[in-house]
Design a protein around this nucleic acid. Sequence first.
DNA 1: CTAGTGTGTCTGAATATCAGGGCAACGTTA
DNA 2: TAACGTTGCCCTGATATTCAGACACACTAG
Lengths: 78, 78
Amino acid sequence: MKTQGQHFRIYTPASLGAAIRHYRQQAGLSQADLAERTGLNRTYLSDLEQGHETEQVKRILRVLKQLGVRMTLEEADW
Amino acid sequence: MKTQGQHFRIYTPASLGAAIRHYRQQAGLSQADLAERTGLNRTYLSDLEQGHETEQVKRILRVLKQLGVRMTLEEADW
DNA sequence: CTAGTGTGTCTGAATATCAGGGCAACGTTA
DNA sequence: TAACGTTGCCCTGATATTCAGACACACTAG
């Protein structure tokens, strides 16, 4: 029944964070909920959603950009 | 003139690495070339392509999986 | 054979990151 | 008002990661 969810193009840590926040809220989860489900720290998720500039993400995105590749996030509906 | 390149679904650090390697080779670049262009260390790229299990990438993929979101890489042809 | 290229891997030092605990601010609800 | 849920943010110690530089191996070209 294809809700045909939107998709996000990821260019920066900030857009990655915004997308994650979107999907988390869409799932009706709090940061604490998601932290528990993933075994991660809530502070980490907070930072992640805010696009807290992490070197690793920036590095990977830099590589992809250099290669002319774009990253996309979309609902999986496996 | 759509070369209609293939796309990659990223589930693990290994699949991310494989995709990056694919695009790098397609671009006709050596690891050293890409390292120079991105300002990164060649060793890092080597590890990245091999899917060297990095906690950070795994964490992010874990979050996305938990949210039912999939990551895709594809040629940008901006 | 020799030189050059591409890649994997090792080391140690320098950085970056994460978890855990806590607190403040805000909005909502009773 | 008080209680609660949610989120941003700070701190600290423990970990994970990245870098530089070097070396070995495989492969190819000359």
